[in-house]
Design a binder for these strands. Sequence first.
DNA 1: TTTAAATGTAAAGTTTACTATACGTTAAGT
DNA 2: ACTTAACGTATAGTAAACTTTACATTTAAA
Lengths: 78, 78
Amino acid sequence: MIVNKLKDLRENKMKQAERSEDWTQEGLALRLGVTRQTIISMEKGTYNPSLVLAFKIAHEFGVAIEDIFEYRDDTNES
Amino acid sequence: MIVNKLKDLRENKMKQAERSEDWTQEGLALRLGVTRQTIISMEKGTYNPSLVLAFKIAHEFGVAIEDIFEYRDDTNES
DNA sequence: TTTAAATGTAAAGTTTACTATACGTTAAGT
DNA sequence: ACTTAACGTATAGTAAACTTTACATTTAAA
């Protein structure tokens, strides 16, 4: 499974960024070329982004994919 | 778009690895939990892996996602 | 306390990743 | 030349990512 820090990162941007409206779900969605629904579902963990979208997100936040998304092997979960 | 070094990396493993059969398309597919078709299509660039699969691939090769997959913005291509 | 921006929820439809199956081609060993 | 492992191609089907639309809830400011 994949866990992500999307919501936390975005909310931090909302607080700290000069142009906070750039970091609303809608603002981010626009720049990423996806819908707000897609942002919501990713933040909730309903589904994982495609690799392309993961790259775009990492680029928007100025970090590496691994800084936002973490893979956890759960093949043998109790 | 995304370009990847999958085929090169795998072929290098075929030559250099002790157990070369681990790095055939089929051997790799088995360990990744996908079909050989999936490997073929990724190596051809027919489609991109999901983020989960990209993580698994990076793990198998012992590198970061960014070492295998590269994102290239092609929104304004001539 | 109303207004509006931001967030949340739900459900049906489209696109793309991935499977399953089957058969053809290449390369290397014997 | 024959065999066989590895690779390639094609195509129909399933699953998951993503869109579209519509409406409901929260939050903060006027």
